[in-house]
Amino acid sequence: MIVGVPREIKSWENRVAMTPGGVEALTRRGHTVLVERGAGLGSGLTDEEYEAAGATLTDAAGAWGAQLVIKVKEPLPEEYKYLREDLLLFTYLHLAAARDLTDAMLASKVTGVAYETVQLPDGSLPLLSPMSEVAGRLAPQVGAHHLEKRQGGRGMLLGGVPGVPPAEVVILGGGVVGINSIKIAVGLGARVTVLDINHARMQYLDDVFGGRIVTMNSTEANVREMVMKADLVIGAVLIPGAKAPHLVTRGMIAQMKEGSVVVDVAVDQGGCVETIYATTHDKPTYVIDGVVHYGVANMPGAVPRTSTFALVNQTLPYALKLADKGLDALRESAPLRLGLNTFGGTLTCQAVAEAFDLPCCDAAEALA
C-alpha cells in the first residue's frame, strides 16, 4: 500500500504521525511511504533520517495522494480538498465537536478511522491514552504558569512555601488525564481534590495517593462548591467519541476567585467548562469574569518530540494492520472497527451521530 505522512499545519503543531523507525517497519513489509518534506522537523526528525529509513520525500499533495494517510490532528479546512472516497484516513478526528469537518468527511465519502475511538475489550483507549498522559502532565504545569501575576493569574505558587498555603487544585475526572494531572500537581505540592462519578475509580485513586488527595463524588453541588474554592481547575472529562458534558457552568465561573485559572483538557471534545473554547499555542488564554481560561486543543504539541514518539509507539501496530490489509483490517479487528467514524458518506460512530442528530450505520454492516 502507498502510505502518506503529511506535515501538520495546525498552529504550533510540531508532532508528526510517523517516526523514521515506523517508516522502516512499513517499508520492510513492502509498503511505499511518502513523507512530506519537513514533516518531522518540529520533532527533531530530519528529512535525511526519513530517506535513510526508506521514505520518499514529497509535497503535501503527494502525501495526501496516498491510499492510507496517517496524521496527528484532524484535517483543517484547507486540507478538505484532499479528502476523497478512495482514501483511508487514520488520525485524531474529534468529530463530535467539529460539525464542519464531519460534513466535509461525509460529503467526500472518505473512510475516517479516529485514534480516539479505537477501543479494546476492557474499555481502554490505547491510541488516546499516550496523548492524554502528556496533556495530563502538562495541565498542572500550564496552570502553574498562568497563576503567575504577569500571566493574569492570582500570583500564586502552586506548592506555596513554608508558612504560606499551597494552591487549591480541582481536577474533574480521574481517568488517564486526571491521574497524570494528580501526579504532577501533588508533586508540585498543591492541595488536590479529584471529582469523579466512578466510585471504584475513586477507591483506586485513594489507595494510590493515600492521604495526599481528596476524592469527591462528581455531583453538581460538589462541583460548584469545589470550583468556588479552586485556584486551578483542570477539566479531565472524557466520554469516548462524544461531546464532553458541561460540568462547570457560566454561573460557576462567575463565582470563582479573581485570577483563578481553568485548564480544560477536554476542549477538543467541546470542553467540560461552559465558557471554554479552543485556543492555540500562539494565543492560549482569554479571560471571562476574571478567570483565566486555557483552551489549547493540541496541548501535547508543546512537547512534540516526547509526544511524537509516545504516539507512534501506540499507533504503529494499528497502522501496520491497515497498511497490510486495508479495509479488511477493520473487518477483522473489533478495536479498529470501533475507530471507524465515517465510511462511504455515512457516520459509523453513534456518539458523533447523537452530537449532531444525524443517522448512523453500524460499522460492521457498513463494511459488509
Results as ranks from 00 to 15, higher is better:
2 I>V: 13
3 V>G: 01
3 V>E: 05
5 V>F: 06
8 E>A: 05
11 S>L: 12
12 W>E: 14
14 N>Y: 14
17 A>M: 09
21 G>K: 11
23 V>A: 12
23 V>P: 00
26 L>G: 02
29 R>G: 08
30 G>A: 13
31 H>K: 12
35 V>F: 02
40 G>E: 04
41 L>A: 10
43 S>C: 05
48 E>N: 04
48 E>K: 09
49 E>H: 02
49 E>A: 11
51 E>A: 10
51 E>L: 13
64 W>T: 01
67 Q>A: 10
70 I>S: 04
73 K>F: 03
76 L>I: 10
77 P>R: 09
78 E>T: 08
79 E>P: 00
83 L>K: 03
83 L>F: 02
85 E>F: 04
86 D>R: 09
86 D>Q: 11
87 L>M: 10
88 L>E: 02
91 T>Y: 02
92 Y>V: 03
94 H>F: 02
101 L>M: 13
105 M>S: 08
106 L>Y: 13
108 S>T: 04
113 V>I: 15
115 Y>R: 09
121 P>F: 08
121 P>L: 12
123 G>P: 02
133 E>F: 05
138 L>H: 07
139 A>W: 07
141 Q>A: 07
141 Q>S: 05
144 A>F: 02
145 H>W: 07
145 H>G: 00
149 K>L: 12
150 R>L: 11
150 R>E: 12
151 Q>M: 12
152 G>E: 05
154 R>G: 06
155 G>F: 07
160 G>M: 05
161 V>Q: 07
168 E>H: 13
169 V>R: 05
172 L>R: 03
185 A>M: 06
185 A>N: 03
189 G>N: 03
190 A>F: 05
191 R>G: 00
195 L>I: 12
201 R>I: 06
203 Q>F: 11
204 Y>N: 07
206 D>G: 14
208 V>K: 15
210 G>N: 09
211 G>Y: 11
217 N>L: 15
218 S>T: 13
220 E>H: 12
222 N>P: 09
223 V>L: 10
228 M>V: 15
232 L>P: 00
233 V>Q: 08
237 V>Q: 04
242 A>Y: 05
242 A>I: 03
249 T>N: 08
254 A>K: 15
256 M>F: 14
256 M>R: 08
260 S>H: 08
264 D>F: 06
264 D>V: 06
267 V>S: 02
272 C>N: 01
274 E>A: 13
276 I>P: 00
277 Y>T: 08
280 T>P: 01
281 H>W: 15
281 H>T: 01
285 T>Q: 07
288 I>C: 06
289 D>A: 15
291 V>G: 01
292 V>G: 00
293 H>T: 05
293 H>I: 09
294 Y>G: 00
294 Y>D: 01
299 M>P: 00
305 R>L: 09
306 T>H: 11
307 S>M: 09
308 T>I: 11
311 L>N: 02
312 V>I: 14
314 Q>A: 14
317 P>C: 10
319 A>H: 06
319 A>E: 12
320 L>C: 12
322 L>D: 07
322 L>M: 13
323 A>C: 11
326 G>E: 14
326 G>D: 15
341 N>M: 10
343 F>Q: 09
343 F>E: 09
348 T>C: 14
350 Q>I: 14
352 V>C: 07
356 F>H: 10
359 P>H: 14
361 C>D: 15
362 D>S: 15
363 A>S: 14
365 E>D: 15
366 A>D: 13
367 L>I: 13
